[in-house]
Nucleic acid binder design. Structure first.
Lengths: 210, 210
DNA sequence: AATGTGGCTGCATATTCATGCAGTTGCTTC
DNA sequence: GAAGCAACTGCATGAATATGCAGCCACATT
C-alpha cells in the first residue's frame, strides 16, 4: 500500500512564488496539492471546507497579513500545521507567528529539498526552522550575555527557585523538596543574597530572564 | 586557499559514542578534531587551553551533567558554540540547556550527514535543532489555546502589572501611577481575577510569558 | 427620578513573606 | 581535637500581600 499522501495548501500573494511552489508540490509523489490561494481572506474561506495537513503561508501579504491568517485559521481548524515562509529574518514576525500558532518557519531562499523535508517534518509533529531563525528563538532563552549571578547557584537552590516561580508558598515548597519550611526560609536568604534581590518577585523575574 | 577548518571538541562519557563521533569528524575534511573528553571536569580544564569553535556535548553524563558543564564553559569561553546531544526528548533538559547557553540541540539518532550539517550551521551562527525538539520550543510560545487573558487588560492594568514585575511595593506603585494604595489593591483584585491567579508571583510569571 | 454599573477609595484582617538571631550536625583544615 | 565552615532547622517579628465588605461618584439605561 502506498504511503498516505500529505495534503498541502499554499497561501501566497505572489503569483510566481505560488506557481513555483505548486509545481514543486505536484512533482512530489508523497504530497498532494489541495489548494492555492492568493490571499488570507480566500484561504480562510476555502481551507476549512477541505482541510489540508500542512499550509504553506507567506508571511507578508497585502490585506490580511499571514500572521493574522494563521491565528484565525488555527482557531477554526486547529489540526492544520502551518509553515510560515518569509524573506525577512525579522524577530517580531517570527515570535508573533509562533504565538499565533504556526509550527515552522522557513526563509524563502530555503532549497526545494529542504522545503519538502520541512513539510514532512511538520506533518510528523516537528517544527522545522531555518537555523538562522532558530537562533533567534534560542537567544530568547539564553541570558543576554555575560554572567548573571544565577550561574553559581547550587542545584538545590535552583530547584527552590523553580518552585518559587510556580507560585507555591513556602510550606508547599518544603513538602516538594522534603525539607522544613524553615529551611525554605534559609534558601530564600541565600538565594536572595546571591541574586542581590529583596523580594520574591525580583527573584522570579531575575531567574526567568535576568 | 582552503576554507578554514571548523575546530571541534567532543564531550561524552560513552566510549563508543565518542570514538564514532571522533571518526566522523576526522573523516570530514572541513572539520578538525581538537579534543575528546570523557567527562565535564576534564573538558572544563582542557577546552579553555585550546578553544574549539564547536563543542559536541553529551547531555547526561555521570558526575557533572552536560548542562552544568555548558554553563561553566560558556562563562569561561563565551565564544564557543555548544551543540547538545541527547537520547531523550525531555523538555526540561532542552530548556535548561538553552538557558545555560547551548546553541543547538540534537537527538543522538540524528544521521551523520545531518550532524555534520548541524556543526556547520551552528558555526555559521545558526541554531540547528531536531524538529521534534524545536516543536517543544515552539509550543512554549503558542498559547495553550485561545487567547491569553493578558490580551484584554486595560492600559492601566498593564501599567500596574509592569510595575508589579519591577518589584515595587503597593505604596510605590501608587505613587508612580498617582492613585491611592487602596486603588492599587483594587487593581490587584481585578487583574488577578482576569489572569486567574492568586499571588503576585503567579501574576508576574503569567505576564512575562503567558 | 430610579436603577444599575464600572472605576475608584477606604478600612479590616488573615495569610504569607523577609530577615535577624541562635542552635544543630557533619566535614574539612590547621 | 579544636576551630572553622556549610547546610540545615527552629523561633520571632515587622513588613507586605490577598481579599472581603462597604461607600462614593460619574454616567448610562429604563
Amino acid at each position: 500500500m502506498q504511503v498516505m499522501q500529505i495534503k498541502v495548501a499554499i497561501v501566497d500573494d505572489d503569483k510566481d512564488m505560488r506557481t513555483s511552489l505548486a509545481t514543486l508540490i505536484r512533482r512530489t509523489a508523497s504530497l498532494q496539492l489541495l489548494g492555492n490561494y492568493a490571499n488570507g481572506e480566500i484561504a480562510l474561506e476555502e481551507i476549512p471546507r477541505q482541510p489540508p495537513d500542512v499550509v504553506l503561508m507567506d508571511i507578508n501579504m497585502p490585506g490580511m497579513a499571514g500572521i493574522e491568517c494563521v491565528r484565525q485559521l488555527k482557531a477554526i481548524v486547529p489540526a492544520v500545521q502551518v509553515l510560515m515562509l518569509t524573506v525577512y529574518e525579522d524577530s517580531d514576525s517570527l515570535f508573533n507567528s509562533l504565538k499565533a500558532g504556526a509550527s515552522g518557519y522557513l526563509l524563502k531562499r530555503t532549497s526545494s529539498s529542504k522545503l519538502l523535508e520541512a513539510v514532512r517534518d511538520v506533518h510528523a509533529g516537528g517544527s522545522p526552522m531555518s537555523p538562522q531563525l532558530a537562533r533567534r528563538v534560542v537567544q530568547f532563552f539564553s541570558k543576554p550575555q555575560g554572567e548573571s549571578q544565577i550561574t553559581h547557584l547550587s542545584p538545590g537552590e535552583r530547584e527552590f527557585l523553580q518552585l518559587l516561580t510556580k507560585g507555591y508558598v513556602y510550606k508547599e515548597i518544603a513538602e516538594q523538596m522534603n525539607i522544613s519550611t524553615d529551611t525554605v526560609r534559609y534558601y530564600v536568604r541565600t538565594v536572595y543574597e546571591k541574586l542581590h534581590v529583596h523580594s520574591r518577585t525580583e527573584a522570579v523575574v531575575k531567574f526567568l530572564h535576568g
